[in-house]
Every structure is written in C-alpha cells, then in structure tokens.
C-alpha cells in the first residue's frame, strides 16, 4: 500500500475528507455565531439547539409527513429562522440595554429547554436519517473513495459560506449590517432600521445553524444532544478566528476541521483537544483571534 509520511495514503486522505466535513459544519455554525455576535454582541448559546432543531425537523418531516431531504433543506432553516426571529423580538430585544452576559444566560437557558423537550419526547438515542437517493454511492478517486454525500456537504458548505461572505462584504444590505455593527446608534440616526436588522440577523444566524443540522442528519444521525456536543468546539473555532469576524469564522472553521482530521492520523488521542490547545495558544498570543481586530 502506498504511504505518505509513513501513513497509508488512503487513511491520510480519508481523515482529510473527514476533517473537511467536520470543518464544513464548524464553518457554517461559527459563521452564524459570528454574524450574531457582531451585531447583537451576545454569544448565542442556543446555536447548538438550533442546529439540532434543523436535523430534527428534517427527521420529523420525513417520518411523519414524508417530506424529503431537499424540501427539508429549504423548510427547516425557514422554520428555525422564524423561531429565531420570535426569540429575538420577544426575549433578546428586552435585554438589549443590559449587560450582554444576560443575553448569554438567556440563550443558554433556551438551549437547555429545547434540548430537554426533545430528550423527553424522543429519548437520547440516535435516530437514523437516510442519505437522499440522488447522493448515494461515491467515486473512486484512485487514492481514496469519495462518498457522494460527503462531497456534497463540503461543496454546499463552501458555497453557503462564500455567498454569506459576499452578501455581507459586497452588497448594500451588507454595508448596512457592517455599519450597524460598528456604530448602531449613528446608523439608526441615518434612517436605517437597526432593530429590524438585528432581528433579521438573528433569524438568519439561526437558519444557518438549521441548514447545517439538515446537512448533518444523514452523517451523524439525529439526537437531542448533537448540537450541545458540537457547539463547544464551534465556540473554540469562533474564538480562534476572532469574535465577530466573518472571514475568520469561515477560514478557521475549515482549517481547524482539517487540523483535527490530520491529528487523528498522526496522534489520535490528541484529536479531541487539539482545537482547544490552539484556542489557548491564540488567546495567549493574539487575544482578538486570528482575524479579529484588537
């Protein structure tokens, strides 16, 4: 068997692919967190639960209503986005003028309630979700086998991240968002409806999490704890990228997924902690993160 750096090539590329897939979820989730943090200044602890909700809505749609994957990929983010809008309008908006710690505690509480409700009704075991028929099978690339669904997850994640970045950096709406992030009071005094932007941003961030949840359903199976397990790592990604940095969230998400995958190849026991070790180092040498502004 061919080897590279003493590692079988197939195992190496297999872990790189796995790293890219994990990185795809890190990137989409940290992107949503970064957008919300930038404008609302709160760390949205409900993000993991919103990711889980996306996966569960896909599973429930298929199990109870026969709604397929592609429809779920559109409907689940829309529904979770709407619940996000309701959470922001009815709850978070009331905390806008108090310490941001209260927003963090509120979103943490909402996450516990949502996860608790789903654990109560569906138990803690994983519920299977099939890969859609169009994306079954795979390609033999010679040096490795690429499952079609996994290739799709990486490609669509990259596309979503790129589209979100373009929306924020290159459009008029994006310039309003960046302005409201930098000087919310003055932006409002220029006639821009900042509270509406805040609400829609929270809804969009929640929808991104749900989109990632639907993408994850056929890979990781669906369970109430799936978001809570992932979100801790995603917080690490956001801190490393720089709180509120859009580009930082995307690059760091994919990059850290790859590093995590490669760590599995070279020293597997360290793979669960490598992101947190990097986070500690970054906090010590560059507290604002790789792409953040000090």
């Amino acid at each position: 068997m061919e080897e590279l750096l003493g590692i079988p090539v197939q195992a190496l590329f297999g872990q790189i692919l796995l790293g890219l897939i994990n990185g795809s979820f890190y990137a989409i989730l940290s992107l949503g967190l970064a957008i919300i943090f930038g404008l609302l200044n709160i760390i949205n602890f409900t993000h993991g639960a919103q990711y889980m909700l996306g996966a569960f809505l896909a599973w429930m749609g298929l199990s109870y209503l026969g709604v397929g994957y592609w429809t779920a990929l559109l409907i689940a983010p829309l529904l979770v986005g709407l619940t996000g809008i309701a959470i922001e309008r009815l709850l978070l908006a009331r905390l806008a003028n108090v310490d941001h710690l209260y927003g963090f505690l509120l979103t943490y509480g909402i996450a516990l309630v949502i996860q608790g409700l789903f654990r109560n009704y569906y138990g803690a075991s994983a519920l299977p979700y099939p890969v859609p028929a169009e994306l079954r099978g795979g390609y033999d690339l010679g040096f490795m086998f690429l499952p079609t669904y996994r290739g799709w997850v990486v490609a669509i994640s990259l596309a979503i991240c790129l589209a979100t970045w373009l929306l924020i950096e290159k459009t008029r709406l994006g310039s309003h968002l960046r302005a409201a992030t930098e000087k919310p009071g003055l932006t409002e005094a220029f006639g821009i409806n900042v509270p509406l932007l805040v609400t829609m941003t929270y809804g969009a961030g929640a929808a991104l999490a749900a989109f990632a949840g639907v993408l994850a359903a056929p890979i990781y199976s669906v369970n109430p704890q799936m978001g809570a397990d992932l979100i801790i790592v995603v917080f690490g990604v956001v801190v490393i990228g720089g709180m509120g940095s859009i580009l930082g969230a995307i690059v760091t998400g994919f990059g850290l997924g790859l590093i995590e995958g490669l760590t599995k190849v070279f020293y597997a026991p360290a793979s669960d902690i490598v992101i947190f070790v990097i986070m500690i180092v970054i906090l010590l040498v560059r507290p604002a993160g790789l792409f953040g502004k000090a």
């Binding site: 302005a179 000087k183 220029f190």
Partner: peptide, 19 residues
C-alpha cells in the same frame, strides 16, 4: 464625523437612504 472605518469611502457615502 461618524465615519465607519469598516466601510469604504463609497460605502460610507451611499450608506444613508435617500429621503
């Protein structure tokens, strides 16, 4: 002056809606 440093000069100029 209220200049947004994360925006370009053109984005600053066109930021407020026309009333």
């Amino acid at each position: 002056r209220g200049i947004y440093t994360t925006l370009t000069v053109e984005e600053n100029l066109f930021l407020p809606p026309e009333v």
